[in-house]
Structure formats: structure tokens, C-alpha cells
């Protein structure tokens, strides 16, 4: 029995070792070296790439990334909660409603992001309509700012918030709500004192599942922020392309990776694997 299993695991091990773990190791090595004159990675070994992470020049971008990811995550949870509640209570239509949430997710991420460029740009649909209606005289600068990026991130990762919240609310015993009402709690009190505390695990899962991809987002800030609204992902990409500073880019990547792992570790430690 064990020999067949070993054989079956071999290809997965090979890919994981050679093309996931080894690359991460190379990044670790690069992050400890120095940028060469023509872009390569050379000795001496140094920790300077890590101390540069605290340089205010980059600190602003890191801080902004956290802020934007945080706002987007909060937005996702706030928007998703009532929807998840509605789906959890809609009986036989549950599957249909959930599939409708997932549907845009099966479309290309690039296409979905482009759809928002199409809506928000100066000559985009929103501005055209508002101009035609005479509400505004000049196009509003809707695209290429932080808010456009936040809208794009919320749009992109909303399903990640709906699913864990839904499965949490779905498991919630309906008789608990009846008990609350029976004991004199008005609907909003039952929501506040019973439903919200009992969906905390779902919210934590939703929070981590949305925050992680938002923090590491690259395409959304690139296309909707238009270079004005840079996040960590764009900074990393910059170091590996135009700036040709691989060591610093590697240190940045590892810092981001560390945050992702810490968040995930904290979630799994607190709520166990079932929350995902």
C-alpha cells in the first residue's frame, strides 16, 4: 500500500519542492545579498534590505497597502453579511443564489477589472451618463485613485466573504433566534446579542480570506490605481523590473509572505481548519 502512495506523491513533491519551496529559498538567499551594478545579485551578505523596509519612503506604501486592504476587507464583510443572511434563509433557492455570487468569479479577473475601468474612466459610462443628464459639467475623476482600487478589490473578493459567512449563518440553529425572541429580545437585539457573537468565526475567516489577497493585490491597483495608488504588490514588481533591485524586492516579498502566513496561522490556531 505504501509503495503506491509514495509513487503517487512523487510528482506533487517534485513540483512543490522544485517550483514552490526552492524558489522561496532562492528569494530568501537573494534578500540577504546586495544589488549588483547592472542589476544582478552579488555579495556581500547583508541585512540592509530588511532595514530598508522601515524607510519612510516605503513605509508610506506599506501603510497604504494595509489601510486599503483593511478598508476593502471591512467593506466586503459589511456588504456580504446581509446577503449571506438572506441566502442562508432562502430555503430551496440557496444553491441558485450562491451560484449567482460565484458566477462573476468564473470570469477572467482581468475582464472584471477592465469592466470597472470601462465604467469609471473619464469617458466611461458613469461620467457619460452624468454629463448627458447635466448633473455634472466636467467628468469626475473616478478612475486612478484609491477609491477606484478599493471598489475593484471589494468587487474582486466579495465572494470570499460571502461563502464563510454563509456557511456560518447556515449552521446557526434557528431555534436560538426563536429563543431570543421568546425571552423578549427584539429582532435587532437578537441580531446584536445572538447572531453577531455566534458568527464571529465566520467573520474572522472572511476577514483573513479577503485581507490576504487584498494585501498582495497587484493587478487591481495597477489598472484602477494607475500608478498613483501603489500597493506592496506593485512595489515588489517594480523592484524586479524597472528598479532592478532584486534583493530589496525579495525582502519585501518575504515580509508580505510572513504577514500572510501569520494571519493564516492565527486564524487556524483560533478556529481550527473547519472555518475555511
Amino acid at each position: 500500500m505504501m509503495r503506491l502512495r509514495a509513487l503517487f506523491l512523487l510528482p506533487a513533491w517534485a513540483f512543490t519542492l522544485l517550483l514552490f519551496l526552492a524558489p522561496l529559498l532562492i528569494i530568501v538567499v537573494y534578500s540577504l545579498q546586495t544589488k549588483g551594478v547592472y542589476g544582478g545579485v552579488v555579495e556581500p551578505w547583508t541585512l540592509e534590505n530588511y532595514t530598508r523596509l522601515f524607510d519612510p519612503l516605503y513605509g508610506v506604501i506599506l501603510f497604504r497597502s494595509f489601510l486599503m486592504a483593511g478598508v476593502s476587507t471591512l467593506g466586503c464583510i459589511v456588504l456580504a453579511f446581509p446577503l449571506a443572511l438572506y441566502i442562508a434563509r432562502s430555503g430551496t433557492r440557496k444553491t441558485l443564489l450562491l451560484n449567482l455570487v460565484m458566477l462573476p468569479f468564473w470570469t477572467s479577473f482581468l475582464v472584471r477589472t477592465y469592466a470597472w475601468m470601462f465604467l469609471l474612466r473619464d469617458t466611461g459610462l458613469v461620467n457619460s451618463v452624468l454629463l448627458a443628464l447635466g448633473v455634472i459639467a466636467e467628468p469626475l475623476p473616478l478612475l486612478y485613485n484609491d477609491w477606484a482600487v478599493i471598489v475593484g478589490l471589494i468587487y474582486g473578493y466579495l465572494p470570499f466573504a460571502v461563502l464563510p459567512l454563509y456557511s456560518n449563518l447556515e449552521r446557526l440553529d434557528k431555534s436560538l433566534l426563536e429563543a431570543a425572541a421568546d425571552l423578549g429580545a427584539k429582532p435587532w437585539e437578537a441580531m446584536l446579542h445572538v447572531v453577531l457573537p455566534l458568527t464571529a468565526p465566520g467573520m474572522r475567516a472572511a476577514g483573513v480570506l479577503v485581507f490576504i489577497p487584498c494585501l498582495g493585490a497587484y493587478l487591481t491597483p495597477d489598472l484602477l490605481g494607475g500608478g498613483k495608488s501603489m500597493m506592496i504588490g506593485n512595489l515588489v514588481q517594480n523592484q524586479f523590473t524597472s528598479a532592478r533591485d532584486w534583493p530589496f524586492g525579495s525582502a519585501l516579498s518575504l515580509a508580505l509572505m510572513l504577514i500572510v502566513m501569520l494571519l493564516l496561522w492565527a486564524l487556524l490556531r483560533r478556529d481550527g481548519e473547519e472555518v475555511l
Binding site: 431555534s175 426563536e178 429563543a179
Partner: peptide
């Protein structure tokens, strides 16, 4: 509404929070 009635219930599953 249930919260307006002067009756209370012991549920079959107890429905303890």
C-alpha cells in the same frame, strides 16, 4: 411578536446560547 408575549418556552433542543 414572541418578545411581546408573557409566555416563555423551554425548547426541545433547549436552544441555549
Amino acid at each position: 411578536r414572541p418578545y411581546e408575549r408573557p409566555v416563555t418556552t423551554v425548547f426541545q433542543s433547549y436552544a441555549l446560547f
